[in-house]
């Protein structure tokens, strides 16, 4: 198992968002996490790379425990890429620097090599010609593709997508999903929190339905989507499909 979450709890004061989540992701697997808003799916993703510190429970990448008190959190985090709903590109860097600088800063990669790699990645998301632009000059869909390239520049073993298309206009969603689909086809391990049921059905290997901080149901996407066994899953799907 490449990524493993054990007994994950997260509470803000008295409010429990995650109530004991167990989840394991195989290398090369694409797992989609769905659920109503406020169900804790984003929190789960953010706990996986410790951007949100879990109240209790353990997170492993390969056999290294992120939640261990003596873990080198920065090094382990750089093995996971994360893509945010709000892109979070660095506005003081050019598009190219957004992708090229992090490996230089974190891994001490040489400038020339980092830039060459960044140009490659920008090409793979179809944005070579925007390399010198500022992020704010780009459309939302373009920004999100840069953000994906930025995460890939760290050579992550797993990519976490936190509602990557939720802030986009419908016609821009397509281009971002296309990039994610290609990434999945190339064998990247992915955990995708999403509202895009079409993507979930066609791309992911396993679908996980979360409600009120608990995994309610999981399995083959086609099976879960067309014949959910749990009443809560049925109710949710009848509203979104």
């Amino acid at each position: 198992m490449l990524l493993r979450v054990e007994g994950l709890h997260k509470a803000y004061g008295d409010h429990e968002v995650l109530c004991g989540i167990d989840l394991a992701v195989r290398r090369g697997e694409v797992v989609c996490v769905i659920g109503p808003s406020g169900s804790g799916k984003s929190t789960l993703l953010r706990c996986m790379n410790l951007i949100e510190v879990p109240t209790s429970g353990r997170v492993f990448i390969d056999d290294d425990e992120l939640t261990h008190p003596k873990a080198d959190t920065n090094a382990l985090r750089s093995r996971m890429g994360m893509v945010f709903q709000s892109f979070n590109l660095f506005p003081h860097y050019s598009v190219l620097d957004n992708v090229a600088r992090p490996p230089q800063i974190v891994k001490g990669m040489g400038r020339a090599q980092a830039r060459e790699k960044a140009l490659d990645l920008l090409g793979s998301v179809g944005l070579s010609e925007k390399a010198t632009a500022r992020p704010r000059a780009l459309s939302g869909g373009q920004q999100q593709r840069v953000a994906i390239a930025r995460a890939l520049a760290m050579d992550p073993e797993v990519m976490l997508f936190d509602e990557a298309t939720s802030a986009l206009d419908p016609e821009l969603v397509v281009e971002v999903l296309a990039v994610m689909r290609r990434l999945a086809d190339a064998g990247m391990t992915m955990v995708v929190v999403t509202h895009e049921m079409g993507f979930a059905r066609e791309v992911c290997d396993r679908l996980v339905f979360i409600d009120a901080g608990v995994v309610i149901e999981e399995g083959e996407p086609a099976a879960v989507l067309s014949a959910p066994t749990q009443e809560r899953t049925q109710r949710f799907l009848s509203r979104v499909l």
Binding site: N49, I51, N74, A75, R77, S78, R79, M80, G81, M82, F84, S86, N88, L89, F90, P102, I105, V106, K107, A147, R150, A151, M154
Partner: peptide
């Protein structure tokens, strides 16, 4: 500076100081 900036930087593996 938006919180998302720090989250993005940390998720890439940058230390707090970086």
């Amino acid at each position: 500076v938006e919180r998302g900036q720090v989250e993005a930087a940390r998720s890439l593996g940058m230390s707090g100081g970086q």
